[in-house]
Write a protein that binds this DNA or RNA. Structure first.
Length: 571
DNA sequence: TTACCTGTTGTGGGG
DNA sequence: CCCCCACAACAGGTA
């Protein structure tokens, strides 16, 4: 049976672990355009017919300023040159299933051109590590393949969106453009610019909500303009709204008018980027555990949904952070890029549960989706959400930035094997369990190192495959007891927390082979091992593996005091 | 005003 | 495996 909430309490929902891109910082890769990929000037290449005379006139009018002469001229121009195009702009939402904006772009009288823009901003300003670049590259290839099966393709273009699109509007004779709503700050500014440019070019824009279960603006309106800051608060609002919109069918074929010529379909200038194009040095990559793409996402979803009793009894807090194989679904990277629709997952879960959402516990997989929704909703309506300063919901805490502390944490050199193993797994594999994120986030901030949560967030942003801006910032505030969560005296022990679920330290031995030979009773605190034991293990602490960067008990106590003071000051 | 309840996921000890 | 408690005590909502 589905895990039903105890008693009459109505709770349900969830979120997927932490992260997404934001401003500042440096990327570790540079973008190189493949040779010969500069956008072709002038409208060549489109020999197909389409559209009707009336449409042509109105478009020509709008675009050229509406002069009467233009109308007459338009009638004289051969039809073929004036066939209309619709652009669907892929950003997130890198999928064909449940993609309302893509479906809105399908019009039998217009050629469909699905576009992905390799925006130099993302390359330079977003903190995207090699694992996530690889995931994106794989995702784009998968998307292109799926589109080709429909008689279309993915058009990957390089450049700033505000420079790319005006060129494409002219070159492709674009009449309409669709995209999925993105609530992140950079995306909003970008999309406003493109919407304005579209108007100037007479291009109609259609935006659809698809990355979140609900329209975040509608959620806020329903809550009378207030941003829900608790799970229960959000749940109450969602209950008023009802179920999220039904999933939209995946297009299984395209009308003839939407298809592109084989010449265009095989033009290499629009091909998805290779890893080299993205500046990724292949030798820097570890084996790929979570391949990107919609195909993989749906396969993974089904693999887990088949395990019905597992799904029904799933309780996030009871899953294991340090198992050798993931104890949760690892669907988060697919949700982040929109390879998997959260609504598809939502309704698939309801099928498996066989009960109403209100009967499903908040620790369930469905609950994780509601937490995701909460962070998206709050992130969409809170100024400076990804920083402490100027962030109205974030407690002001006098963190003390120390580069050495941050670096030790970031590269798994704190001397606490449990913490270091997690950070090493993160760097290598791009994914760590949600509770492992808790342990290292608490350790970096209020627990031990007293470093600003923003610094930790940026590291996650680079290294996580599922780095999702709203979730990352929200969870870092949560774990640092800066917002959402306030019981700061609950501190994860960097020693005991891991020991509960992995008493032999197999996880540590896997990711820190140097410590492999330590006996079980010292594996979580090897500095306590007598020198003879260290020698026997072939690993001298302070030489082959770092001494603990802080005394956990002392640091914890001191930080508790500081938290108390910060909370007092905030009143 | 005060008391109480609830809030996804602490630790360490005990039964 | 489960639950309970003390630890020392947060915010925000409700009665």
């Amino acid at each position: 049976m589905a895990k039903v909430r105890e008693d009459s309490k109505k709770r349900d929902s969830s979120r997927f672990t932490f992260c997404s891109p934001s401003a500042r910082g440096t990327s570790h890769v540079t973008l190189r355009a493949p040779s010969g990929t500069a956008p072709r000037k002038g409208g060549g290449g489109r020999g197909r017919e389409g559209g009707d005379g009336r449409r042509r006139n109105s478009l020509t009018q709008t675009r050229r300023g509406g002069g009467r002469k233009d109308c007459i001229l338009a009638r004289l121009v051969p039809r073929a040159r004036l066939s209309m195009t619709t652009i669907h702009w892929f950003r997130k939402g890198l999928r064909l299933h449940d993609n309302p904006a893509l479906v809105a772009a399908i019009d039998e009288n217009k050629e469909l051109r699905p576009v992905f823009v390799l925006d130099p901003w993302f390359v330079r300003e977003s903190r995207t590590g090699v694992n996530r670049w690889r995931f994106l590259a794989q995702t784009l290839v998968d998307l292109d393949t799926s589109l080709k099966q429909l008689g279309s393709r993915l058009f990957v273009v390089r450049g700033k969106p505000e420079e790319v699109f005006p060129k494409l509007f002219k070159e492709w004779n674009v009449e309409k453009m669709t995209w999925e709503v993105d609530t992140e700050p950079y995306a909003r500014t970008r999309d406003e610019k493109i919407e304005k440019l579209s108007k100037e070019h007479g291009v109609k824009v259609v935006c659809k909500v698809g990355h979140t279960l609900y329209d975040t603006e509608k959620v806020i309106r329903t809550n009378l303009g207030k941003t829900p800051l608790t799970f229960q608060g959000l749940e109450g609002v969602l209950k008023k709204i009802g179920l999220p919109p039904k999933v939209v069918d995946r297009p299984t074929s395209l009308p003839e008018g939407c298809k592109i010529s084989s010449e265009v379909a095989s033009d290499p200038k629009y091909d998805p980027p290779t890893l080299k194009d993205l500046g990724v040095v292949e030798s820097d990559l570890e084996p790929c555990l979570y391949p990107g793409g919609e195909t993989e996402a749906l396969k993974r979803l089904e693999k887990y949904m088949e395990r019905k009793s597992w799904v029904r009894s799933f309780e996030k807090p009871k899953t294991i952070p340090n198992s050798l194989q993931p104890s949760t679904t690892v669907l988060s990277p697919y949700l982040k890029f929109g390879c998997l629709s959260c609504r598809t997952m939502y309704y698939r879960l309801l099928e498996v549960y066989g009960s109403k959402p209100s009967q499903i516990a908040q620790e369930s997989l469905l609950g994780q989706l509601t937490f995701r929704e909460m962070f998206y909703t709050v992130g969409a309506t809170t100024a400076n959400f990804d920083q402490m300063e100027g962030n109205a919901i974030c407690r002001q805490i006098p963190w003390k930035r120390d580069e050495k502390m941050l670096e030790a944490w970031e590269f798994g050199k704190t001397g606490f094997p449990f913490i270091d193993a997690i950070m090493i797994q993160l760097r290598k594999e791009g994914w760590i369990h949600h509770l492992a994120r808790h342990a290292v986030a608490c350790f970096l901030t209020r627990g031990d190192l007293w470093q600003p949560w923003e610094d930790g967030m940026k590291v996650f942003e680079e290294l996580l495959l599922d780095a999702d801006w709203s979730l990352n910032a929200g969870n870092w505030m949560w774990l640092s007891a800066s917002a959402f969560f306030h019981r700061y005296f609950r501190v994860y022990s960097p020693i005991e927390f891991g020991r509960k679920t992995d008493p032999h330290g197999d996880y540590i031995r896997k990711y820190i082979p140097k410590l492999k030979k330590f006996p079980d009773n010292y594996i979580y605190e090897p500095w306590k091992a007598p020198l003879s034991v260290q020698k026997a293990a072939g690993c001298i602490i302070g030489q082959d593996y770092p001494r603990p960067i802080v005394d956990h008990q002392k640091a914890r106590e001191e930080n508790l005091k500081r938290m108390g003071q910060a909370y007092q000051a905030g009143k």
